[in-house]
Write a protein that binds this DNA or RNA. Structure first.
Lengths: 142, 142
DNA sequence: TTGCGTGCAAAGGTTTTGCATGGCA
DNA sequence: TGCCATGCAAAACCTTTGCACGCAA
């Protein structure tokens, strides 16, 4: 989109694979490993370079969950604007799950931050940390 | 608190220094460098081990801002519970600043997440990404 | 033919780990 | 004295970079 002088086999493979992952998150290593299994392996550096490019084009979104694990990406390119505003991520500090959440009410947060604090929130990148429902229950029982 | 069989010079030095940082954030390297300047240097591994221990004891809070930079810590041990619930962090994606924010209204987020989604949010660790007021203005002018 | 994109290997930075030593109780 | 905590150096980990080659246009 921004600039892609040459279109390559790897770029096409990546994009068509990433489209299929819609709604799921993945790491650079996940992607690399996927193509290694196929007989169309893509080099590590190429995977990183292309993922980063797609992020800057707005096709992927990148999350940094915690520093002990690799960065997470998610295909968000073809999602419409309204959806973006109510799409959030919750990260459970106990079981480690990254939970997707669609919630209108949470969208008011961005409005509040904008109005009262002049801060334009990026819901795509923001991650709420805490304890998920399941782990919360387990904790009570113990 | 959890377990500290032996109390060492390094532990005391660290804790008394960290108490002074209240309200500011710092990296493991910041801490190590500080003591290197002093004539009471503390080994890198020891700094990391103790910071991690203090995090698990709830005295420090650890933020992962982005994967290209080191993890940030903040001394939050002696803050009272009410304050914790309305203390948030905003990270500007443009200028990179990490902004501290005390806001009652934002606290309702945790309640909403708890009630409607069973998710117990940890405000101390949650970071809102977006564009700060200043960078927002600059962006408009361009 | 031109020069961008790729792939390999090496480097980069942060954090962790193994192991011998030091020091608290 | 017993054994945890420390410190050094090396390793681990994810990611980026240098450079030569391949391939799109």
């Amino acid at each position: 989109m921004i600039k892609a002088k040459y279109r390559t086999r790897q770029q096409d493979l990546l994009l068509s694979y990433l489209r299929q992952t819609q709604g799921k998150h993945f790491t650079a290593e996940d992607v690399r490993a996927h193509f290694e299994q196929t007989n169309a392996a893509i080099g590590t550096a190429t995977v990183y370079r292309n993922l980063e490019k797609l992020v800057s084009e707005g096709i992927l979104t990148k999350y940094v969950i915690d520093e002990h694990s690799a960065a997470c990406f998610e295909y968000t390119g073809e999602r419409c604007c309204r959806d973006e505003e109510k799409h959030f991520h919750l990260k459970c500090e106990v079981c480690g799950r990254l939970i997707h959440l669609e919630c209108d009410e949470l969208a008011c947060i961005s409005m509040h931050l904008q109005k009262d604090h002049g801060f334009t929130m990026n819901p795509l990148r923001t991650v709420f940390y805490g304890v998920c429902a399941e782990c919360g229950k387990k904790g009570e029982n113990q």
